[in-house]
Write a protein that binds this DNA or RNA. Structure first.
Lengths: 199, 199, 199, 199
DNA sequence: TCGTAAGCGAGACGGTACGTCGAGTCTTGCT
DNA sequence: AGCAAGACTCGACGTACCGTCTCGCTTACGA
């Protein structure tokens, strides 16, 4: 008889199936959104039995979260200049919106997380982590003296990505890369006309 | 013969049922979110038959949109000073978040609209209309010379509400009213430290 | 508002669906047997949703029992002569085997009842009832003096239908009507050669 | 090196596993019946992998049949007197019902065989073989002149075991050994009151 | 004043997806 | 090559809602 102990008895889980499931999930998330995503649809598109999905993820939530986690993130850029850092980071981020289902997945998950504590618990750390490069750039700038020492960096970060979020959630149109320059300009300098130019 | 338009034979629709349905919809939207909202749940909570709902709204989408439309909006404030306008408007808006299901309904609908063209078509005008007071305040400020004549007001509006949206969608915590002052300050003046204070 | 009490609120259950379900059940029972009968198969063959089946029968057991109950029974025959009664009854019973799924359903249920107390509870009274005409004929014969007063009628009944049961359960072949005459002869007179004919 | 034929390269099949599987199958068959028998259950109870079962039997049917085949059979008894032969044979057969899962397995298989040609093919020879001692006893009696020369021995055999089959399939109660004497008496002499005793 | 047409709550209808379980197959590392 | 373990695809389970459809009632209008 074979050994009965050991940590890895039996057939190991198929890495291929794992990847196929995550890929199918992302494709379907992008196509139909979180609330119209069916596990049966994922299974069928991945060429996989439903049990294989439920063996790995207890429900469709953690599955979706893991799939989301696979999507590329904000790339940190350090040029020594805050404006340049932000412009490059946001530009490449907007590019992700066009190349991945990110723009479709993000609102779906965000809209669900409030009503789903489990989802919230899983996804909040990921969302925080995705902000990191932005906050890091601000921290560096603060150290360099580009930003006031007492500036609330969290709020500053929200100000910078805010317009992108607003358009992502409330608008159907693609977000144009040419938005980036005025956006960064406005966030850095404010909307108010400089004092000296006023009549 | 029918009197006017042929629309008024038989028992008239119950206004009471109508109101009960919308109220139940808002309550459930706030409680479980759009994707977990069931028409059966609405019917049962409103003490109404499902047919009574489907007689008025072709699907749960327009129902939800109409219910959302009932929620109070951003109140326009005109003090003659942009900062003051914004502070008062945002403060009262945040108050709505605590008094109505708005904070729960908004992300749900926003998360769904991308995957649901019907919903998008219905809700986009409402979303635009809700921004109106904010844009109006900016227009007034622009006329007064507080803002540059070539300022993109849409982008400016997004910058102002952006942080609220970001926290609404990505955060579980209530959004504190004390956030408003630094937010408006930052949006008006920018995050960058004024030139003259740099070492 | 409409009345909220009353015993029959809502749409009444469809008699047509009911009949279609029972018909489909019998057909499938005959075709694939009890253990291969699927509720999904019944629903699909009856053109009915699964919920419509589960609304009426809590599981496939009572469904099958009710379907079985619909099958025609042993017809009582009273000619004043036991042999003639038995011959006519058995002949018409064998005919049912060829005209209905009875011959297929009976072994399936009998094979299951031992392992399924619920099924047993439901089907045993029906099985007993189906024996009644046979026992009645024996009782009449006993009263007439054709049978000994102390004869165990239950055992006698088992002796008469025994060979049919044996062939039904253990044999694939159809049971020939021409079996009836020798069967009744043997049951009435016994297998032993009469004393006086022995060498 | 392989010893005798080309069939014995590698590790030989474990006789122990084989026996454990058959034993577990019989136990489970008796406990839950054929249709509730799961191969997984057998494997787990036998402490064996499913593959080890499927390596020996192509499906659960032949497995069950072979397990059934292991059960003890009707013992042939030859006392020179038919009545005595039958009484002893049936009595010891009934004893098997109480000592083995036979009484539970038999109806299950019989109920299934009609819908399962594979099962039927496998089990019919076994069922025929199990009747052999009974038919042999009748043949001997026929040779001795106890039975008419033209008696249909198959039918006679069915008459004798018929009541047992009927009670086995349609009744939950144990079949009492004290049933044997009246049963044999009735089968030999018939149910009809002898002519000379009639009024 | 009364008929009638539409609305009402209730709930059954045919469907679809849920998350679970077992079938029979396949793939590990070990013997 | 067999072994125990356990993952694989597939398909049925019984449940929950979907959006539609009767039911037997109100209810208000217009003849």
């Amino acid at each position: 008889m074979a050994s009965t102990s050991g940590s890895s008895a039996g057939r190991p889980r198929s890495e291929e199936a794992h990847r196929a499931i995550l890929r199918a999930t992302l494709e379907l998330l992008g196509a139909v959104g979180f609330s119209n995503l069916t596990v049966e649809g994922v299974a069928s598109r991945a060429g996989v039995g439903k049990a294989t999905i439920y063996r790995r993820w207890p429900s469709k939530l953690p599955l979706v979260v893991e799939a989301f986690h696979e999507l590329p993130q904000l790339m940190d850029v350090d040029t020594g200049n805050l404006g340049e850092d932000l412009r490059q980071m946001l530009r490449s981020y907007l590019q992700l919106f066009n190349e991945t289902p990110l723009a479709a997945v993000l609102p779906s998950l965000a809209g669900e997380r409030r009503h789903n504590p489990q989802l919230s618990e899983l996804i909040d750390p990921i969302l925080r982590q995705r902000r990191r490069p932005l906050v890091s750039a601000l921290e560096r700038a603060q150290k360099r003296g580009e930003l006031a020492a007492d500036l609330d960096l969290d709020l500053a970060a929200d100000l910078i990505v805010g317009p992108i979020a607003v358009r992502l959630f409330f608008t159907g149109r693609r977000i144009q890369p040419k938005l980036v320059d005025p956006l960064v300009e406005l966030a850095l300098e404010g909307v108010r006309r400089p004092e000296q130019s006023r009549g």
